[in-house]
């Protein structure tokens, strides 16, 4: 019987470790503050609460797909199909209700089920046939853009379907915008609900912790006896569901379906996830960071809109620069971590 006790304090203090872990997300939050305060200092009406509220109206679909993308990236994968799946879902909403005359709730149910099934299928291909996620989801990018265009190559309006007006109804209205009030529609709350559910799932369920474990080391997760197949396929199902849901929300937001909508949305989502502090190699990150990442993207666009004579390309360039900064930051943190451990 051993009576000896081995004590080891962490090689880095837990406090310090806490700090390194939160450096990326801390940087994102600081960036948000700088952007917001900068906006208030430069533009007279920027301090209206509706400016913030509008972030969650305009970017609700992006937020939803970014949350789905967070699951995939945390597990060490990538999903390029979300933009096309989203456009396809919006188009299906329009087509099945306007042209085929199905009832709108049924259509929404079908679309969501379809998105999930697609995710399950491609996840299975990725796991069982060991196809690179990049290539497998590329199939979805092409396929659903093509199918969307085949349904219609022009805009389809859904104004006449009462159901799709639900999304923009004011759920919360505080005062009048003119007098410093704000309002938020239902679809923003759908996005919030998605974030909360994702947060709880990722942090408090076995599936969620499994996602982190698989992203940390798939080999280890397998040898620890974790359900790797279920986890890997599951994240793509989550992402597929989120993309379909985002498509439905986009349908409600614009009440029309554009076959070329959301081209490149997958890139925006990936950028938001990385700027939110999630490691592109998987295993580390927070879904709340993704919210911050999406807000950075939204605020950049808002600032440019207020500026008036700047064009939207600056937002893209800024996103690229931020992405570079965050990737280099992660690289530096990873290297210093390696050094400290040996």
């Amino acid at each position: 019987m051993s009576t000896q006790t081995l004590t080891e304090r962490p090689a880095r203090s837990t406090l310090f470790d806490g700090v390194t872990r939160y450096i990326p997300i801390g940087a994102t939050v600081a960036l948000l503050l700088v952007l917001y305060l900068g906006g208030i200092a430069s533009f007279p009406k920027f301090d209206s609460p509706q400016v913030v509220a509008k972030l969650f109206i305009d970017n609700a679909p992006l937020l939803i797909i970014a949350v789905g993308m967070t699951f995939v990236i945390l597990s060490g994968g990538i999903d390029l199909s979300v933009g096309s799946v989203m456009a396809f879902s919006t188009m299906c909403c329009a087509w099945l209700t306007v042209d085929a005359g199905l009832s709108a709730p049924l259509v929404v149910g079908l679309v969501l089920a379809f998105g999930t099934l697609w995710g399950l299928g491609i996840g299975a291909v990725i796991h069982y046939f060991n196809v690179q996620p990049f290539i497998a989801t590329l199939v979805g990018l092409f396929l659903f853009r093509g199918l969307t265009l085949q349904i219609s190559d022009t805009d389809v309006s859904m104004r006449d379907i009462q159901f799709f007006h639900w999304g923009m109804e004011h759920l919360v209205e505080v005062g009048k915008i003119r007098t410093g009030g704000f309002w938020l529609p239902n679809l923003s709350f759908v996005a919030f609900a998605v974030v909360i559910v994702a947060f709880v799932v990722l942090h408090y369920t076995r599936f969620g912790r499994g996602v982190y474990a698989v992203g940390g080391s798939e080999q280890s997760a397998l040898l620890m006896g974790l359900p790797v197949a279920r986890t890997k396929i599951g994240v793509y199902a989550v992402s597929g569901f989120c993309a379909a849901l985002a498509g439905v929300m986009a349908a409600m937001g614009t009440k029309s379906a554009n076959p070329l909508a959301n081209v490149g949305a997958e890139l925006d989502a990936i950028a938001a996830v990385v700027i939110g502090g999630t490691l592109l190699t998987g295993g580390a990150g927070f879904v709340l960071g993704t919210v911050a990442g999406v807000m950075v993207w939204g605020l950049l666009n808002t600032l440019i809109a207020f500026q008036g004579d700047l064009s939207s390309w600056w937002a893209r360039i800024a996103m690229g620069v931020l992405l570079l900064a965050f990737i280099l930051l992660q690289r530096v943190l990873a290297r210093s971590g390696e050094k400290r451990r040996t």
Binding site: L267, A271, I317, G320, L323
Partner: peptide
């Protein structure tokens, strides 16, 4: 990916 996102802006 960085330039894929920022490149068109440039």
């Amino acid at each position: 990916l960085i330039l894929m996102i920022a490149g068109r802006g440039i």
